[in-house]
Design a binder for these strands. Structure first.
Ligand SMILES: [Zn+2]
Ligand SMILES: [Zn+2]
Ligand SMILES: [Zn+2]
Ligand SMILES: [Zn+2]
Lengths: 135, 135
DNA sequence: AGTCTAAACGTAACACTATTACGTCAATAC
DNA sequence: GTATTGACGTAATAGTGTTACGTTTAGACT
């Protein structure tokens, strides 16, 4: 597996990426803004601009169904096929994985339709093992 | 294929479903509201409440990556596995399909993790055949 | 050095998406 | 009749994301 190179992060990008890494789970842009106010952040655009770059570099993923962002679990996803996410609706835990076989089947479908695939969003909702074991 | 039963639609639900069917593509909740103002709609909640039910009945799908809603292409998706969507980023066309094989592979992964899957979101972004053929 | 350019940044204002809160109404159940 | 339920109407508010505009920073080139 090759990890694609990306430019050094700017100060704002590092702060945003750091907040996501520390969180160990998804954060909304406004939650990141609140965390980084003590570092001088004042406006949402500072967060969104950093997130745009981090997503572009493959260091962060956007979770569409949560309107939130999460640090990549693989030190950058650029090197392999797209990622998928299992999201526990009880505790909020997010597990990232890379279902290359399933994505290939989806790609077979798009290829058959002449659809040029550029990005996949796969988000699974449910109850994780530890939450399902309770009571 | 069996189509699951659902209650008769209320007036508001029928209006919202009708606007989505007529559109032949995705609409945001506020776009629906604007369309239905001439039918007496005044507030977003009237749209959101109807959409909640229509989604529950499987007549309408929510496209997470567009914050929009689209009428189901299969007269109700309750009868089969979850749906997937190919969304053209140029013309906005949305194609619904049901990749049962890919979803089964995803389910295999969640089963292995003890994750109880309740809902899948699969949205593919790219360029459709007719848009890709241009120039 | 001086100039040019591109990328990142700061700030304010705004637009879009979704929910909470509270009251009303109609249909059904007891 | 009264209680329960579900749908509805309206206003206010909360949450998410973008546009607009000007400034700063870091390199590239004379
Ligand atoms: Zn990743
Ligand atoms: Zn959980
Ligand atoms: Zn469907
Ligand atoms: Zn197209």
């Amino acid at each position: 597996m090759t990890v694609h190179a990306h430019p050094e992060l700017t100060k704002n990008q590092s702060l945003v990426f750091g907040s996501l890494s520390d969180a160990g789970g998804p954060l909304t842009a406004y939650a990141i803004l609140d965390i980084l106010r003590e570092n001088g952040f004042r406006a949402p655009l500072q967060v969104y601009r950093a997130l745009d770059k981090l997503v572009e570099y493959g260091l962060v993923h956007r979770l569409e169904s949560l309107n939130a962002f999460v640090a990549c679990s693989h030190k950058g996803c650029s090197g392999h096929g797209s990622a998928a996410f299992a999201i526990c609706e009880k505790c909020g835990e997010v597990s990232e994985f890379t279902p290359d076989d399933a994505i290939q089947l989806l790609k077979d479908w798009t290829d058959g339709k002449g659809f040029r695939l550029s990005r996949t969003t796969i988000e699974l909702r449910g109850i994780c093992r530890s939450c399902g074991a309770e009571t």
